[in-house]
């Protein structure tokens, strides 16, 4: 119980941090509000998805997927450069927990705002209330498993003491391999194998099926999504625990 309460304190700290950050950083707020529309233009220009609902939903999921990776892994680098990470690591929690749990409120707040921004377009595109509710659920939870990957990348980046963020090229590759830009069927065999191991592949398939009202094996997609997401989360938590010990030995977070 005490452990849950103290972890909840990290979520609250994250809430305080990000609300304060947006309060003082109007330019970042404006960029954040404009981004879903820019991604929507990009997605529609690429021809990914078949209608307005699909474009809107894909835009939310792509930005959320990018954010959950970038905000944790990139956030770790930024906090190290600011010198904040040293003091955050003094909290009585593992560093990976601090990075993940302080980020959660930002993820939920931003996803809700993105959904609110694009929901009118989905309604205009003919989305039913049930579709909207399902889209909201997918948006809120769908890209979250990538946060665990972000945690892993963050730990590795700190271990390597590299400021060049690997995520810059990890994210586009991940989106392509997940079928966010091109259908998985059109990808080379090797990439297809990677696709099968990514939770985002099933997330984008569900989004596509939801937006186009097409028939899909929802149970299979959901099971595959949950299985890969759990596997990534478990692997990331286990790996980052070991990596973190090396980081503290080398001082990679300082």
């Amino acid at each position: 119980m005490i452990a849950v309460v103290s972890r909840l304190a990290l979520v609250k700290a994250g809430m305080h941090l990000w609300l304060s950050m947006y309060k003082h950083n109007k330019a970042a707020l404006a960029a954040f509000l404009a981004r879903p529309y820019l991604v929507l233009l990009f997605v529609s220009a690429l021809g990914a998805g078949q209608n307005l609902v699909a474009w809107a939903l894909l835009s939310i999921l792509i930005t959320s997927a990018v954010d959950s990776l970038w905000d944790i892994a990139g956030g770790a680098i930024t906090q190290r450069l600011l010198g904040v990470l040293t003091y955050a690591s003094l909290a009585p929690h593992r560093m990976a927990e601090i990075l993940l749990l302080t980020y959660l409120p930002r993820y939920f707040i931003e996803t809700l705002v993105k959904f609110a921004e694009l929901a009118p377009l989905m309604v205009a595109g003919g989305a039913t209330p049930a579709q909207l509710a399902a889209a909201l659920a997918l948006s809120l939870l769908g890209a979250l498993p990538l946060a665990s990957l972000g945690m892993l990348v963050a730990s590795l980046t700190l271990l390597a003491r590299e400021d060049a963020p690997w995520i810059d090229w990890t994210i586009p590759l991940l989106l392509v391999a997940s079928g966010a830009i091109y259908p998985v069927a059109a990808l080379p065999q090797l990439v297809k194998a990677v696709s099968a191991a990514l939770p985002t592949t099933y997330l984008f398939s569900m989004a596509e099926a939801l937006a186009t009202n097409s028939s899909a094996d929802w149970q299979l997609l959901l099971t595959a999504f949950l299985a890969t997401a759990s596997a990534w989360l478990t692997a990331s938590l286990l790996a980052s625990e070991r990596i973190e010990s090396s980081v503290f030995r080398r001082g990679g977070h300082l």
Partner: peptide
């Protein structure tokens, strides 16, 4: 602990907001 005079805080946040954030991390509420 204080390991640096210049670094270690979020630039955009006020002094009070920064302290509140670290206080929360350290278990105060």
């Amino acid at each position: 602990v204080m390991l640096s005079v210049e670094r270690g805080f979020f630039l955009k946040l006020t002094g009070r907001e920064n302290l509140k954030y670290f206080g929360m991390l350290y278990g105060l509420s």
